[in-house]
Amino acid sequence: MKRHYLGEFEELVMLIVGVLADKAYGINIVEEIAQRFDRQVSLSAVHVTLYRLEDKGYLESNLGEATPIRGGRRRRVYNITAVGRAELESSQIKRAELWQLITKAGKS
């Protein structure tokens, strides 16, 4: 399979999905990013990113329950797949390695 690389925003969204566990859906992700990073992202950008990550196989989704606040519409809840998790981890490891190199260089 072709290997996909994660963009910055994609990685951010994936991490947030991981953090929110079973409550990761569109507007919730936007709110979470706003709270944690003080960063305003548009709802549509998040949706499109979610689609793309789903296409790549890093996320999977299911229709959740409907609530009155949503006008009776169901939410689409996202979860990280095994592949997605592996990708995040490998990205994390690569970064850690790079950080180590940077700190070593700083010390010497």
Binding site: I27, L43, H47, I69, R70, R74, R75, R76
Partner: peptide
């Protein structure tokens, strides 16, 4: 459905 729901929320 999810888009509409998110927008309303």
């Amino acid at each position: 459905e999810p888009i509409g729901g998110d927008l309303v929320e």
